[in-house]
């Protein structure tokens, strides 16, 4: 414990960042353990009772002790829906980041290490992708996917389509970062040394370059996790993301939005608060990591 405390002191993490980290961590834990923590399963339609619909939260005069945060228009427990919604948002966010990282890193390493025409081709494709707004590209991809694979219309497939759609746009950032870092590392003597030793490119890239550029990749990934979850929420809010039967936070906000002005504002508000604080916490941690690992800014820290 003492060792842990001194390690914390030596890192000099600001209290605000630490609080954000703890909050994001706790929410993630709750989301992971959702089936054990949530009072109800919001995806099990047979467990709802329309008679329970639109009950106010307990602290707003709601009279049903079963529903702490009240219910939505279907009689679904809002607390459970938010926990499961956060879980879906996190899964899609993490999945999209993982997909984008793998794709972006692979292409960025190839472009940065080999250069020449293959670099030009990859980076021009990246430029084209970047000239599409994220939402438009995601709409396009989910539309095409649903047209091509009828099975993809099933709600179980929705997260995978979303991961693909968001990742297809986001890999460009990774590719650009990784390409630049790879070019810097390739010019250093330790890479030239292993080239003289005669190691094949594959081994040089994976054993020597990748470990040295991972710090910058991880920072981009953390910052991107927030934007990926935000994109997912936006798509779900627009109705092209998660279906109402498998609601993410964005879907819940959309459902709540319809009742917003009939006095039942809590259906939209609590998922929105959860989403905003999750994104904020992730951003705070991500920004701190970025400053921490950016050698140009490190002097000031």
């Amino acid at each position: 414990m003492k060792a842990l405390a001194s390690r914390y002191l030596s890192l000099k993490i600001p209290v605000f960042v630490l609080a954000a980290g703890v909050f994001a961590g706790a929410l993630t834990l709750v989301a992971v353990l959702a089936p054990f923590i949530a009072p109800y399963n919001p995806t099990n339609i047979s467990s709802f009772n329309l008679a329970d619909s639109e009950i106010a939260p307990l602290f707003l005069g709601g009279d049903d002790p079963r529903f702490v945060l009240g219910t939505d228009n279907q009689g679904r427990d809002l607390l459970s829906a938010i926990i499961y919604g956060a879980r879906i948002s996190l899964i899609i966010g993490a999945g999209a980041v993982l997909f984008a990282t793998l794709l972006g890193m692979t292409l960025g390493l190839i472009a940065g290490y080999f250069g020449g025409w293959i670099d030009a081709v990859i980076m021009r494709v990246a430029d084209v992708i970047l000239s599409f707004p994220t939402i438009l590209l995601a709409l396009l991809i989910s539309g095409i996917a649903r047209a091509l694979f009828p099975a993809a219309a099933e709600p179980e497939w929705a997260p995978i389509i979303l991961i693909g759609a968001i990742g297809t746009h986001d890999w460009v950032q990774y590719a650009r970062t990784v390409r630049a870092s790879t070019m810097v590392e390739s010019a250093k003597d330790y890479v030239r040394a292993v080239r003289v030793i005669g190691l094949p490119s594959r081994q040089i890239i994976f054993r020597h370059i990748v470990p040295n550029i991972m710090a910058s990749v991880l920072v981009v990934a953390t910052v991107n996790l927030a934007t990926a979850m935000l994109t997912e929420a936006t798509l779900s809010f627009l109705g092209v993301g998660m279906p109402p039967t498998y609601p993410s936070l964005g879907t819940l906000i959309r459902i709540g939005n319809e009742f917003m002005f009939s006095g039942i504002w809590w259906i939209a508000l609590f998922p929105a608060i959860t989403l905003v604080s999750l994104i904020l916490a992730t951003n705070v941690v991500g920004d701190w990591l970025r400053d921490r690992f950016n050698p140009k800014l490190r002097v000031r820290l």
Binding site: Y190, G198, P211, N212
Partner: peptide, 27 residues
């Protein structure tokens, strides 16, 4: 084989030195 001018950049900072020396031996 070659040795370089700057001893600070010519070794991979994230690889134990024994591993770095064993790498060409294995290869």
């Amino acid at each position: 084989q070659m040795i370089f001018q700057d001893p600070y950049s010519s070794l991979n900072a994230r690889m134990p030195v024994g591993e770095a020396i064993a790498e060409p031996i294995r290869f």
